[in-house]
Amino acid sequence: MDGRFYLMLSLAAVLLVLAAVIFCGRGDWLIAGYNTASRKEKEQYHIGRLRLLVGLLCLFVTAVLLLDGVYGLSGFFTIILLPVVLAVVVLANTWAKKR
């Protein structure tokens, strides 16, 4: 095992903890954009759906980091992460937004 493996393992552990905090409802301040929005802007979103999206994104990145650390799939990490992040952004502005 090299240092890169331990770095990926550490990052994955941090993201796993952050996902747990978000799923428990204590990590709204971690959601970029939501944490700086006014009360009126925050009322436009289903916070439960937004938490679900961000928590699942954290779990996905955790899994990808572990795969990258174990198997050295850094190209996979780059290729797969961008579409997933874009999908979360789109869903956050459609599915998680109140109509």
Rank of each mutant, 00 (worst) to 15 (best):
R99H: 08
A63D: 03
F5N: 03
V21A: 04
P83A: 09
D28M: 09
G27Q: 06
L18A: 14
N93G: 07
F76N: 00
R4G: 07
L73D: 00
S10T: 15
L56K: 10
D28S: 12
T78I: 11
A32P: 01
K98V: 14
I80E: 00
L86H: 07
Y45V: 10
G33V: 01
R39M: 01
V61G: 01
A92D: 01
I31H: 07
T94L: 10
A13G: 13
L65T: 02
S10W: 04
L66V: 15
L16M: 13
T94W: 08
S38F: 04
L50V: 02
A19Q: 04
P83Y: 07
A19Y: 06
E41M: 13
Y45N: 02
T78P: 00
T78V: 12
L11T: 05
K42E: 13
T78D: 01
A37F: 12
V54L: 10
W29M: 02
V54N: 15
W29C: 02
K97L: 06
G55Y: 03
V70R: 05
C58M: 15
E43F: 01
A87S: 13
W95L: 14
R26N: 03
R4L: 12
R26W: 09
K98Y: 08
C24L: 09
G25Y: 06
R99F: 02
I31N: 04
I79F: 11
N35L: 06
R99N: 05
F77T: 14
L30W: 08
Y34C: 07
A92P: 02
R51D: 10
R39E: 14
C58N: 13
A63C: 10
Y45A: 04
K42Y: 11
L67R: 05
F76Q: 05
V70S: 00
G33S: 01
L67P: 00
S74A: 09
L9F: 12
V88A: 13
Y45D: 04
V70L: 13
A12P: 09
A20R: 13
L66K: 05
G75H: 04
R26Q: 10
N93W: 08
D2M: 05
L81F: 05
